[in-house]
């Protein structure tokens, strides 16, 4: 589930461009990278937990692939939302086929317009936000507190985000955070060279951002990346 944000920022749009131009390697890389996303999208439509063996997973992966080919970049639409929507449509088609046992392909050539994608994205994001808030509450943090403790200055924020990234990417540190509900400042300090005060002052913010980085919040993450 872990996705390195650094890497993402630099390479996703590049990979996407290459994949759309027919670069198979880039397509493979994106598929691998977004497999957790595809799994989560599929399981959400089905409303149950899934494993790699389920047929629906391959439908989802195919849909993602299809999205790679069909996506036309625009300023307002995110690829992730587009892909999410394609996955859902294909799965719904698949389920219908299963039920009716007849080829019903009406939606296959249906064009997806921007409003659809945007709305889909917003709805997906709303789900994520609700889960995110619940997870924050597990740390005893309210969303207002995050807003109140959010570093205003860009450089301070970037430092805090860097700390959050370290938290999210190190399994043992993250396990500690989850168990104790607070940040192991000395370990983080050692790992990042960040000042202890930076970490202490922005504790709430760092936890919130680390949750987004680490948790199943594809759309929120996607929003932050661009």
């Amino acid at each position: 589930m872990r996705i390195s944000m650094e890497e993402d920022k630099a390479s996703v749009s590049d990979l996407l461009k290459r994949a759309m131009d027919g670069d198979l390697e880039a397509r493979g890389a994106l598929l691998a990278k977004y497999k957790p996303f595809v799994l989560s999208a599929v399981s959400k439509v089905l409303g149950r937990f899934i494993t790699d063996c389920d047929d629906e997973v391959s439908i989802g992966l195919q849909a993602f692939d299809e999205a790679l080919l069909k996506f036309r970049p625009s300023k307002s639409t995110s690829f992730l939302a587009f892909a999410g929507l394609v996955i859902r449509r294909r799965l719904v088609d698949f389920i219908r086929q299963q039920k009716q046992k007849r080829g019903n392909e009406i939606s296959l050539d249906e064009t997806l317009n921007i409003e659809d994608v945007d709305q889909f994205e917003a709805v997906e994001r709303r789900d994520e936000i609700e889960r995110f808030k619940a997870e924050l509450a597990g740390f005893g943090i309210r969303l207002e507190e995050v807003a109140e403790n959010c570093p205003r200055r860009l450089d301070a924020r970037e430092r805090a985000q860097q700390a959050a990234r370290l938290l999210a990417e190190d399994d043992s540190i993250w396990a500690y955070v989850q168990r104790r509900g607070h940040i192991p400042i000395s370990r983080l300090e050692g790992a990042s060279g960040l000042h202890r005060k930076t970490v202490e002052r922005h504790r709430v913010y760092i936890i919130a951002i680390a949750l987004i980085y680490r948790g199943p919040y594809f759309y929120l993450r996607d929003y932050l990346e661009h």
Binding site: R125, I129, F132, K133, L143, E144, V146, A147, E148, C150, R152, L154, R157, Q161, Y205, A208, I209, L220, Y223, L224, H226
Partner: peptide, 21 residues
């Protein structure tokens, strides 16, 4: 992105990672 709303105030998350009331 609107994260929480009450009346015409709310908490948003901006693209550059700010949570703001």
């Amino acid at each position: 992105v609107l994260m929480q709303v009450s009346g015409n105030t709310g908490v948003v998350l901006t693209r550059n990672g700010q949570f703001r009331k």
